[in-house]
Design a protein around this nucleic acid. Structure first.
Lengths: 169, 169
DNA sequence: CCAACCATGTAAGCTGTTACATGATTGA
DNA sequence: TCAATCATGTAACAGCTTACATGGTTGG
């Protein structure tokens, strides 16, 4: 399963949509970073259908092939993904976008894990700068790494800020 | 040309290196994000060689195939890339890492362009949040977009901070 | 001498990009 | 009626990932 696949499952879970409607979401929102154009979305939908994670139903009138719905298996897979340990921070943000709105516990757990991951990556970059590995990079490389540090700090800040919004205690 | 290709050209321009040495750089620095393992690097080197952007020379002793050097064409292409207009910010950071250390003008030009690009993306995200496009995203989607805003702000801050370091006036 | 590292590759498979193709329907 | 948009696809190609394969050399 690719990120695009999970994004499609997540959008369909929010509400059943046709392939075209899904395509539009990617064209008109920042989700667009995960795809572009029919050439990726339709084949991806087809493969999700073949894997029995989605089904197309109820063509209204005779146009198109109807709207996609999650199968039980698709739902299972989506939730497993949402609950899986955090690896890549970018993928984690995609997951966050599809976390259930009402599940405060899952949200807080996620944010804690996200924060840990960001802090651990931060520590890694700092160790790299402190060590001698940086000698293989050009002089500008260190400044580029500084950019990475700031990005990770922003991620960590976001996690702390968001956590406060969600914790009622 | 892929980002990996440019990264290889840039590293070779810094100093001639063998395929193995290049591989090590990717394994031990944050540049690793652009590649992984022999399966991508060696084929990429081969294609750069076939395109006459790199040549392997001077096998010291009989081990390996020697070190890669830039051809005139390779150097031309690398510099064209370094000077090209900024599209993707991630790719732009890779370029920054390989900008010539002594070229203050190019650096300042780059940083200005980078800042503009970041600010323009910021404006885009803010417009998206203000508009009605956000209705297609789940509730958490807006908070995820907030993360994107913070990332772009961090990029813009980095550019301003770095610009100050480099401007002597 | 044996493990670790030097050093380079190949092959299968999946995904995504780009570009093209098709036909229906709606609004001006 | 003509352009735009709805709606869905296919085909060629490039690139990366994973996994496997192969030998030489150095250090303990």
């Amino acid at each position: 399963m690719t990120p695009l696949g999970y994004a499609l499952l997540g959008l369909v879970q929010m509400q059943p949509r046709s392939g075209y409607a899904l395509r539009k979401v990617f064209e008109t929102t920042p989700l667009g970073g995960y795809s572009s154009s029919p050439g990726s979305i339709y084949p991806a939908l087809k493969s999700l259908e073949k894997a029995a994670l989605l089904v197309a139903r109820d063509p209204s009138g005779k146009r198109g092939k109807g709207e996609y719905h999650l199968t039980a298996e698709g739902e299972r897979l989506l939730h497993a993904w949402l609950a899986s340990p955090i690896g890549d921070l970018g993928e984690a943000m995609l997951r966050f976008a599809f976390l259930r709105d009402d599940d405060r516990d899952a949200t807080l757990t996620f944010l804690d894990a996200f924060l840990s991951a960001a802090e651990s990556e931060l520590a890694g970059l700092e160790a790299f700068l402190a060590g001698d590995g940086a000698k293989d990079l050009p002089a500008r490389g260190r400044i580029a790494v500084e950019h990475g540090l700031r990005q990770l700090q922003a991620s960590a800040d976001w996690a702390r800020w968001t956590r406060e919004q969600y914790s009622t205690d």
